[in-house]
Design a protein around this nucleic acid. Structure first.
Length: 479
RNA sequence: GGCCCGUUAGUCUAGCGGUCAGGACGCCGGCCUCUCACGCCGGAAUCACGGGUUCAAUUCCCGUACGGGCUACCA
């Protein structure tokens, strides 16, 4: 069905820390492309202007490269189908959306966010499926143009058919059928003029001649909408391949609350990229003949989709550690030493740490005990220490959870920004004071009640490591 | 609530109608060894349930249960 050269892509959105799931999906995309002599494209989906950041985009390149993924085309390396950053393609989406408007496949919707919210609430109460009720579907042409003229804000929605079924043909799962009446009139163009994921995704995949859409299972329910878009444009649809979702130990979708997920963390925690990739390859996929340790070339030569297992694999850190140990042990001593120096005792980190502990030192060898928590992820703080004077366990848990959430939103991990978050938290909560919150944060972050200045320390440790400490603290305090 | 996806030991998986259900992590025991780790040997532990189809179901089909995802002007 597809005689075109294989082209696949990953399309992360630069809204947070580089995610292990991105590497997971990226790996399978890359392997499939390489196996078929095709191309692997990296596209940045930064259509959410309120959440996308440059820092996050850079971090994606850095982390994906670190783990060993290489792409043939992307914002940073260019290519014949650019630009590869969606924020630079706004006009393309608008032009295409205009075509849809013209062909009656889409319509302008003037409904307020407020009305939509009430509508959804009502539908939930009535136990009906929550979807747009189509009020603006049949607006008279004159009204539409007059309201547009007068500057009323609007979005553009896809006009989904009222009857019939849409079939999603998934390479791994076969035919998945949807009643068209179940499918919402998806917003295609937001009122800020930017496209939603759905529009941008379909337009780009077509324009970039993507042949196989390999993405996570969570996208299955929106695939019928995408198919409707391909049909509306009169385009050939790609082959859809929905991979299972990585899971937490409790089988929910993997999340930073319950698992380390930031690639930056895995790097700092001392995992080798080759072990990471090898481990991710074993999530849902297996080599023939029970081989567990293998490299990319071996995987590529053996890869086939029918060896995919569809149940969501639990991301098991212990097994990753075992595998990583296998790789570490076979390294020549000098290589291992080089990696420790490059990753654990990174030049810049050591410099920062030395600055921070200098005034506390009386002997050179005190460097080691004074700074050990900067260089290891293995900090276990007992429950008693995590509950400072004047707090109880429940309050400590709440504060740590809240702080952790606020800290998540800090995109530029600098001491000033960290301090601002902590101070703002104290100011807005009457049941805690500065002293308690800072001490609690110190203990959570460093595992100690005595440390160099807190904010500078947290900055030097880096976001990934700090977040992990908060996660661990939460786990030990969990009721 | 609605719509989808999934279901082999605690976890990752092999299996693709007839197997003593294989491997790995973890766990337990032993060996190696100055200790630990590594390595080696051994052990406990699995086909969610109920109906079909079939001479024969872990395997195919249908239900149920359970788990998960989606249900935004986020991706």
């Amino acid at each position: 069905m597809n005689s075109r050269p294989v082209r696949v892509r990953i399309a992360p959105s630069p809204t947070g820390d580089p995610h292990v799931g991105t590497a997971y999906i990226g790996l399978f995309n890359m392997i499939f492309a390489r196996q078929n002599g095709g191309s692997f494209v990296l596209r940045i989906e930064d259509t959410d202007q309120t959440r996308s950041t440059k820092e996050s985009e850079e971090a994606i390149y850095r982390s994906l490269r670190w783990v060993g993924l290489t792409w043939d085309e992307g914002p940073d390396v260019g290519g014949p189908f650019g630009p590869y950053r969606q924020s630079e393609r706004t006009e393309i989406y608008q032009t295409h959306c205009a075509k849809l408007l013209e062909s009656q496949h889409a319509y302008r919707c003037f409904c307020s966010a407020d009305r939509l919210e009430r509508l959804r609430e009502e539908q939930r109460r009535m136990k009906l499926p929550t979807k747009y009720d189509g009020r603006c579907r049949e607006l008279a042409a004159e009204e539409v143009s007059s309201r547009t003229q007068s500057g009323d804000p609007f979005v553009i929605r896809l006009k989904t058919p009222d009857d019939g079924i849409t079939v999603v043909n998934d390479l791994l799962r076969g035919e998945i059928q949807y009643e068209n009446t179940q499918i919402d009139d998806q917003v295609l163009l937001k009122s800020d003029g930017f496209p939603t994921y759905h529009l941008a995704n379909v337009v780009d995949d077509h324009l970039m001649e993507i042949t196989h859409v390999i993405r996570a299972e969570e996208w299955i329910p929106s695939t019928p909408k995408h198919i409707m878009l391909y049909n509306a444009f009169g385009w050939e649809q790609p082959t859809f391949i929905h991979m299972p979702l990585l899971r937490n130990a409790d089988r929910s979708k993997i999340s930073k609350r319950k698992n380390p997920v930031s690639l930056e963390f895995f790097r700092k925690a001392g995992f080798l990229p080759e072990a990471m990739l090898n481990f991710l390859a074993m999530m849902g996929w297996s080599m023939p003949n029970d081989q567990e340790k293998f490299c990319l070339d071996e995987m590529r030569s053996q890869f086939s989709w029918d060896r995919m297992s569809l149940s969501g694999p639990v991301f098991n850190l212990e097994k990753l550690e075992w595998l990583n140990g296998l790789y570490l042990r076979e390294l020549p001593v000098n290589d291992l030493k080089a990696r420790i120096l490059a990753e654990v005792f990174r030049e810049e980190l050591v410099t920062e740490v030395v600055k921070l502990i200098q005034e506390r030192m009386r002997r050179l060898d005190e460097f080691v005990p004074l700074s050990s928590f900067f260089f290891t992820t293995d900090v276990q703080t007992p429950v008693e220490q995590l509950v400072p004077k004047g707090m109880d366990k429940k309050l400590a848990h709440r504060v740590i959870r809240d702080l952790s959430e606020h800290l998540d939103n800090v995109t530029s991990w600098k001491s000033g920004n960290i301090e601002a978050v902590l101070r703002a938290y104290v100011d807005s909560h009457d049941d805690v004071n500065i002293k308690q919150v800072f001490m609690l944060s110190r203990i959570v972050a460093t595992g100690r009640s005595a440390s160099p200045p807190l904010f500078e320390t947290m900055e030097a440790m880096g976001k990934a490591l700090c977040q992990d400490r908060f996660r661990r603290a939460l786990a030990t305090l969990r009721p």
